[in-house]
Every structure is written in C-alpha cells, then in structure tokens.
Simulated scan of single mutants.
Amino acid sequence: MQAITTYFNFMGNTEEAMNFYKSVFGGEFTSFARFGDTPGSENMPAHERNKIMNISLTTKSGAILMATDFLESMEQRLQLGNNIHLVINADSEEEVDSLFKVLSAGGKIEMPVNKTFWGAYFGMCEDKFGIKWMLNYAYPQNK
C-alpha cells in the first residue's frame, strides 16, 4: 500500500497546530514556507504574509502530515466538521492510552478508549484544533 499523506487546512493557526503534532509524534519539518516568501506577496495584506503557505512534518515513523493556513483575503473559509478522522494503529494498549491522553487534552472525547467487540482497544477524540482521531490497537488473533 502506498503511504497516505494527510493535509490539514487551518484558519490562521497552522504553525501552532503543527508544532503540537510534532510534540506528540516527533520527527522533523521537511518543508516550510510562509506566504510572505512567495512571489507577489507584497500585494497581500501584511497580516497574512506570516501565515503558513505549506508545511510538512515527517514523523519518526515516516508518516507525513501537511498543512496550510486559509486566507481571508482569498475568501477561504474553514468549516470544522466531521469530514475526517485520522486513524492511528498503535503497537500496544499503552501507546493508545498515551496518545489519546495528549490528543484529547483541550478537545473532546467522542468515544472513551475501551476494549471492543471487534477485538481491538479503541477510542475516538477530537483534538483542540478540531481534528478527529481514531486510536486503535488490534489484539493478535488466535489462529
């Protein structure tokens, strides 16, 4: 299977959000550009030039999270909703608990972590930036 890259849109707080995700998952920013670094930026409103045009975080595991700031001057509007959940398949219950605790802090728990009927340790939350997460540890199956 090919890697799936997730791209987030934020309304002015991309840098804060991506620094948060880096603190949770580790890794390094592999690309980083502000709107003010682009040709024609002198025609943009001054308060938007420092916003993030594109940022990529490559985590310790090799997953890639990318993001941008929507700009009001371009009539972009962010509508938070339930159109995305990111699934993390963890290596243990402990990893699920640890990630769930950090990701749900300041956000909302949608489904507390628990053992499920389908043979997993699973929980769902929304983080403080409105991103929805599913955390899953699939128990080994007896054959």
Results as ranks from 00 to 15, higher is better:
residue 1 M to W: 03
residue 2 Q to G: 13
residue 4 I to Y: 13
residue 4 I to S: 15
residue 6 T to S: 15
residue 7 Y to I: 08
residue 8 F to Y: 14
residue 9 N to Y: 14
residue 12 G to E: 04
residue 12 G to D: 07
residue 14 T to M: 11
residue 16 E to A: 11
residue 16 E to V: 07
residue 17 A to N: 14
residue 19 N to H: 15
residue 21 Y to M: 06
residue 23 S to T: 11
residue 28 E to K: 14
residue 28 E to P: 02
residue 29 F to H: 09
residue 30 T to A: 08
residue 31 S to G: 07
residue 31 S to E: 11
residue 32 F to I: 00
residue 32 F to P: 03
residue 33 A to N: 10
residue 34 R to A: 04
residue 35 F to R: 07
residue 37 D to W: 03
residue 38 T to K: 10
residue 39 P to K: 10
residue 40 G to Y: 05
residue 42 E to Y: 01
residue 44 M to D: 06
residue 49 R to S: 02
residue 49 R to H: 03
residue 50 N to K: 14
residue 52 I to R: 09
residue 53 M to Y: 08
residue 55 I to E: 08
residue 58 T to Y: 04
residue 58 T to N: 10
residue 58 T to C: 11
residue 62 G to N: 03
residue 62 G to A: 01
residue 64 I to E: 12
residue 66 M to C: 14
residue 67 A to G: 05
residue 67 A to I: 00
residue 67 A to D: 01
residue 69 D to N: 03
residue 73 S to W: 11
residue 73 S to L: 14
residue 73 S to N: 14
residue 75 E to N: 15
residue 76 Q to W: 03
residue 76 Q to P: 02
residue 77 R to K: 15
residue 77 R to E: 13
residue 79 Q to T: 14
residue 80 L to H: 12
residue 81 G to I: 00
residue 81 G to R: 09
residue 82 N to L: 06
residue 83 N to P: 03
residue 84 I to N: 14
residue 85 H to L: 07
residue 85 H to Q: 12
residue 86 L to A: 13
residue 88 I to F: 10
residue 90 A to N: 09
residue 92 S to P: 06
residue 97 D to C: 00
residue 97 D to G: 00
residue 99 L to C: 08
residue 100 F to C: 01
residue 100 F to Y: 06
residue 101 K to T: 13
residue 102 V to N: 07
residue 103 L to Q: 10
residue 104 S to H: 09
residue 104 S to I: 01
residue 104 S to C: 09
residue 105 A to E: 15
residue 107 G to C: 02
residue 109 I to S: 06
residue 110 E to L: 12
residue 114 N to W: 00
residue 115 K to S: 10
residue 118 W to V: 04
residue 120 A to V: 07
residue 120 A to Y: 09
residue 121 Y to G: 01
residue 122 F to H: 13
residue 122 F to G: 05
residue 125 C to Y: 00
residue 128 K to G: 06
residue 129 F to G: 00
residue 131 I to F: 07
residue 132 K to W: 05
residue 133 W to S: 05
residue 134 M to V: 02
residue 134 M to W: 01
residue 135 L to R: 07
residue 137 Y to E: 02
residue 138 A to S: 12
residue 140 P to F: 01
residue 140 P to K: 07
residue 141 Q to L: 07
residue 141 Q to P: 02
residue 141 Q to M: 11
residue 142 N to E: 14
